Simulated assay, not measured.
Amino acid sequence: MTQRAIAYWVIPPEQDAEFVAAMEEVLDVYARPYEAAHPVLCMDEQPIQLIKETRTPRPGTLTQPPRVDYEYERAGTASLFLFTEPLVGWREVTARPQRTKADWAKEVARLLEGRYAQCPVVTLVSDNLNTHTKGAFYEVFEPERARNLVRRIKFCQTPKHGSWLNIAENELSTLTRQCLAHRRFGDMETLRTEISAWSSSVNSKQRGVDWQMKVDDARTKLKSIYPKIKL
């Protein structure tokens, strides 16, 4: 008997009140109209393997595609941090050697004190990871600065096994297809140059995100997730 290939998927839970509560909170956030003083920002992370060529690649020709050697050299890893503001069609990707609490806090602080310095509050949608915590800021910054940052963030975390609700995950998928797939990056500098160029190119087109699913849609189409009320 031939065994069929296994398809890997995010299987939603059944009758999970905590999942439902977190999901509906995210959907309510996405349904909000644009507000410059209180923007909605989504973020996600992705590891990437740095790989050096051991032989000089050959460029493509009219009859031959570009060719690289099978042999390569591992050059460590990097972590991508992608932030996107869906309603204005803006995204930015940075790369760091690690993805610790400190790295996450520094990236968020850089935006709050830079691009969003004039915004009293920013809603931050992110995955439910143990590195995405208020305490992370206190591990990196002095208490006063940490508190000033934390009080300006309204955290909104996607439920576990519900990362599909994070718009930044979709942006990372696009980045992978358009910039990272079938390419080798041997050092951090080259990687940063390429992802920055991708961000600038996509931002120049000002493509916003029109999120279609609303709370009412979820209650109709995802009934199996909602608990059965016992009277």
Results as ranks from 00 to 15, higher is better:
41 L>D: 06
166 N>P: 04
74 R>W: 11
135 G>Q: 09
80 L>H: 01
118 Q>M: 12
184 R>V: 10
149 L>E: 00
10 V>F: 11
102 A>F: 02
94 T>M: 04
2 T>C: 11
175 L>G: 05
143 P>I: 06
36 A>W: 12
73 E>R: 13
4 R>H: 15
175 L>V: 06
57 P>D: 06
75 A>P: 01
170 N>K: 05
52 K>P: 00
25 E>G: 00
211 W>E: 08
50 L>F: 04
108 V>G: 12
42 C>R: 02
71 E>P: 00
156 C>F: 06
108 V>E: 05
35 E>W: 13
224 S>N: 13
131 T>S: 11
131 T>E: 07
48 I>L: 13
161 H>W: 09
100 T>W: 05
216 D>H: 13
55 R>K: 14
83 F>C: 07
125 V>G: 01
199 S>R: 03
121 V>C: 13
202 V>S: 01
165 L>K: 07
190 T>W: 02
50 L>P: 06
136 A>S: 14
202 V>P: 00
79 S>E: 10
69 D>G: 11
125 V>S: 04
87 L>Q: 15
214 K>F: 03
187 D>C: 15
170 N>R: 06
10 V>D: 00
103 D>Q: 09
197 A>N: 09
174 T>F: 06
206 Q>W: 03
189 E>M: 11
103 D>W: 07
16 D>A: 12
123 T>K: 07
3 Q>W: 13
103 D>M: 09
26 V>S: 08
225 I>G: 00
4 R>T: 12
37 A>I: 09
117 A>E: 12
105 A>Q: 02
149 L>S: 07
166 N>E: 04
71 E>T: 13
121 V>S: 12
155 F>W: 14
185 F>M: 04
225 I>D: 00
52 K>S: 12
179 C>P: 00
201 S>Q: 10
221 K>M: 10
71 E>V: 10
143 P>K: 05
141 F>N: 08
7 A>T: 14
220 T>Y: 11
162 G>W: 02
195 I>R: 05
61 T>Y: 08
110 R>G: 09
17 A>Q: 15
72 Y>G: 01
